[in-house]
Amino acid sequence: PQECLLLEPGLNEIMANSLDYNERLWAWESWRSEVGKQLRPLYEEYVVLKNEMARANHYEDYGDYWRGDYEVNGVDGYDYSRGQLIEDVEHTFEEIKPLYEHLHAYVRAKLMNAYPSYISPIGCLPAHLLGDMWGRFWTNLYSLTVPFGQKPNIDVTDAMVDQAWDAQRIFKEAEKFFVSVGLPNMTQGFWENSMLTDPGNVQKAVCHPTAWDLGKGDFRILMCTKVTMDDFLTAHHEMGHIQYDMAYAAQPFLLRNGANEGFHEAVGEIMSLSAATPKHLKSIGLLSPDFQEDNETEINFLLKQALTIVGTLPFTYMLEKWRWMVFKGEIPKDQWMKKWWEMKREIVGVVEPVPHDETYCDPASLFHVSNDYSFIRYYTRTLYQFQFQEALCQAAKHEGPLHKCDISNSTEAGQKLFNMLRLGKSEPWTLALENVVGAKNMNVRPLLNYFEPLFTWLKDQNKNSFVGWSTDWSPYADQSIKVRISLKSALGDKAYEWNDNEMYLFRSSVAY
């Protein structure tokens, strides 16, 4: 590609939709070469300064400071330590791993069909083939991996386009969902002041979706909304933040926050679980009234959910574990990228498509890292959202599997949720969690119950496949010279610098 592309739109479109291996590689590498390399010296300084700040406030390091958001002291029976968070994340991840490994094996087999000769049947997945710029969410792999393609499509993007949905309609439908469970409408100022579409040439905007509580009843969302099912669900997520903000607005200023950061992320995700169900999509006209649910549509639905929800958990866990180790000084600065990709291979089963030396800073190419967000919130929120969903479905008197529950129109479920939201940070999160779900610790069981039918199906699908991955295989081993030459021509001086062995191999191949 010759034109100058922004991340959004532009590069993200390539990473969402392109099936051209080399075009995807160009976009993936260009973003890291342009952005990651510029941020490397800044990120090194950032780590030093943030650690100084944390230690001045009596924390061991900046990662310890972040984990302090979960700490509860002096509340008998509800205490929770920063170290306990690490333990809980690690042991819940071990419980999730078998499901993830089977999802990984299934996706690898489907990617082998889409990119023959580029995928190893026992290796890691190349990082640039996973549906977005970071491989964070695998949602866009659904069209390549759908188990029963002859069934009606449960990705309702086409239906939204056919019905001329726009950003306003998407957010109005999200608002209807919250109102149906007894939560309030958005304010008039929300509709007047939010930026729900890309302003285009009028001004440059950071398009990463964010929710804003500017105080004095001024709530806004910034999002360059596209007419897709993914953005339909994202709208519910962002509006969930606003509902939380509005619910605790009466609290004293210092207590106007989520019980912990994971709670804030979980609220909209609960609504997304219901909004994505075929039952709900039928009720708002995005699935045909004669759409029939059966075992095959159930597996299609659960796989689509797993690509988004299960596929991202190792990504989140590994990223934050790397940062915690960096802040603690356990990874020397001259080994940041080496350790990043070692951990990516070992924990996530994902491999870099071309080698990256220590001039890169791949983590900082992600919005949340370069903008100083702690990231473990996206792991804890996933466990909380299924715990909350299970409890709210019980309040809504849902009968049947958890993945079929739609809590819309249940004011009982809405009241149970609101009673927790309005507390803000005035009560320990362990107590707030217990008030809703009857337990005071994160628990992976509801998530595993939700995906149980899919897990059973995946194990059957993978019975003749290798489950797990070898960390030795690299996608650039066989194609390295071709890849390096093409990237050198595209990126010039910003391309990865060849070492002596690679230059010798190149000259030998040319001479041959």
Rank of each mutant, 00 (worst) to 15 (best):
269 E>V: 06
140 N>I: 01
233 L>W: 03
373 Y>L: 03
301 F>Y: 11
193 N>G: 14
250 A>M: 04
374 S>P: 09
193 N>T: 07
272 S>E: 05
230 D>T: 01
381 R>G: 00
241 H>V: 07
309 I>R: 01
378 Y>V: 05
208 H>P: 10
137 F>N: 02
305 Q>I: 01
252 P>A: 09
230 D>L: 04
234 T>Q: 06
153 N>T: 05
217 G>D: 15
188 Q>Y: 06
305 Q>G: 03
265 E>W: 08
140 N>A: 06
272 S>C: 03
252 P>V: 10
304 K>H: 08
256 R>F: 04
229 M>T: 10
137 F>T: 09
153 N>I: 05
214 L>M: 03
188 Q>E: 08
192 E>N: 13
139 T>S: 05
250 A>P: 05
261 E>W: 08
140 N>E: 08
257 N>G: 08
188 Q>H: 11
308 T>W: 03
378 Y>H: 09
381 R>A: 02
189 G>V: 13
212 W>P: 13
136 R>T: 06
251 Q>L: 13
234 T>K: 10
229 M>H: 01
218 D>V: 15
368 H>N: 08
218 D>Y: 14
217 G>Q: 15
304 K>E: 10
206 V>C: 09
257 N>Y: 02
375 F>C: 05
216 K>L: 15
253 F>V: 14
215 G>V: 11
153 N>F: 06
217 G>Y: 15
251 Q>Y: 13
216 K>P: 15
229 M>F: 04
189 G>W: 15
372 D>V: 01
309 I>Y: 02
212 W>N: 13
218 D>H: 14
245 D>G: 10
220 R>H: 12
377 R>T: 07
256 R>Y: 06
215 G>L: 12
189 G>K: 15
246 M>K: 14
210 T>C: 08
256 R>K: 04
213 D>I: 13
256 R>V: 09
206 V>E: 10
264 H>W: 10
193 N>V: 10
304 K>C: 03
209 P>Q: 07
215 G>W: 15
233 L>H: 06
188 Q>K: 08
241 H>P: 12
139 T>I: 09
374 S>Y: 03
246 M>L: 12
212 W>Y: 09
192 E>P: 09
368 H>W: 08
245 D>T: 03
153 N>A: 07
208 H>S: 08
216 K>W: 15
301 F>M: 06
241 H>Y: 10
215 G>I: 13
212 W>E: 14
261 E>N: 05
187 T>M: 11
261 E>F: 02
192 E>I: 07
367 F>V: 08
272 S>Q: 05
301 F>S: 08
229 M>A: 05
252 P>G: 07
264 H>S: 02
233 L>K: 04
305 Q>H: 08
257 N>R: 02
269 E>G: 02
237 H>A: 04
372 D>L: 01
217 G>H: 15
216 K>T: 15
249 A>C: 09
368 H>K: 03
209 P>R: 11
188 Q>L: 10
220 R>Y: 13
229 M>P: 11
308 T>V: 04
215 G>K: 00
136 R>S: 05
187 T>A: 01
253 F>I: 14
153 N>Q: 08
230 D>W: 03
378 Y>L: 05
246 M>H: 13
251 Q>T: 11
218 D>N: 15
137 F>D: 04
212 W>H: 13
261 E>P: 07
375 F>Y: 10
250 A>T: 10
261 E>T: 07
216 K>I: 15
264 H>Y: 10
304 K>Y: 04
220 R>N: 13
378 Y>D: 09
214 L>T: 14
153 N>L: 06
216 K>S: 15
218 D>E: 14
257 N>Q: 05
261 E>G: 06
140 N>P: 05
210 T>G: 07
140 N>H: 04
377 R>M: 06
136 R>M: 07
140 N>W: 02
372 D>R: 02
373 Y>G: 06
208 H>D: 07
305 Q>V: 02
188 Q>D: 09
252 P>C: 08
193 N>R: 15
367 F>C: 08
233 L>P: 11
215 G>T: 01
265 E>P: 06
373 Y>W: 04
246 M>Y: 12
250 A>N: 05
264 H>P: 06
381 R>E: 05
220 R>L: 12
377 R>Y: 09
304 K>M: 03
210 T>E: 10
188 Q>R: 09
272 S>K: 07
140 N>Q: 03
217 G>V: 15
264 H>Q: 08
215 G>F: 01
301 F>R: 05
373 Y>H: 10
373 Y>A: 06
230 D>F: 02
269 E>N: 04
140 N>T: 08
372 D>Y: 06
375 F>S: 07
264 H>I: 10
233 L>E: 07
189 G>T: 14
377 R>H: 03
368 H>E: 08
264 H>M: 08
257 N>D: 10
252 P>M: 11
137 F>Q: 03
216 K>A: 15
367 F>T: 07
193 N>D: 14
220 R>G: 12
373 Y>V: 05
265 E>N: 06
368 H>S: 05
189 G>P: 15
237 H>I: 06
245 D>R: 12
264 H>V: 10
264 H>N: 09
234 T>S: 08
381 R>T: 06
209 P>L: 12
233 L>G: 09
237 H>S: 05
305 Q>D: 05
374 S>E: 04
139 T>V: 02
304 K>V: 04
372 D>N: 11
309 I>Q: 04
209 P>H: 10
217 G>N: 15
250 A>V: 03
252 P>D: 00
252 P>I: 11
241 H>W: 08
233 L>F: 07
214 L>N: 13
261 E>A: 06
368 H>T: 06
375 F>T: 03
373 Y>N: 12
136 R>H: 07
208 H>E: 08
193 N>E: 09
249 A>T: 12
153 N>W: 07
269 E>H: 04
139 T>Y: 05
188 Q>P: 00
251 Q>C: 04
308 T>E: 01
378 Y>N: 03
213 D>N: 06
137 F>I: 09
188 Q>S: 07
305 Q>C: 03
218 D>T: 15
265 E>C: 05
246 M>P: 01
256 R>H: 11
252 P>H: 07
251 Q>A: 09
246 M>W: 13
219 F>E: 14
214 L>G: 12
368 H>Y: 06
309 I>G: 01
249 A>H: 13
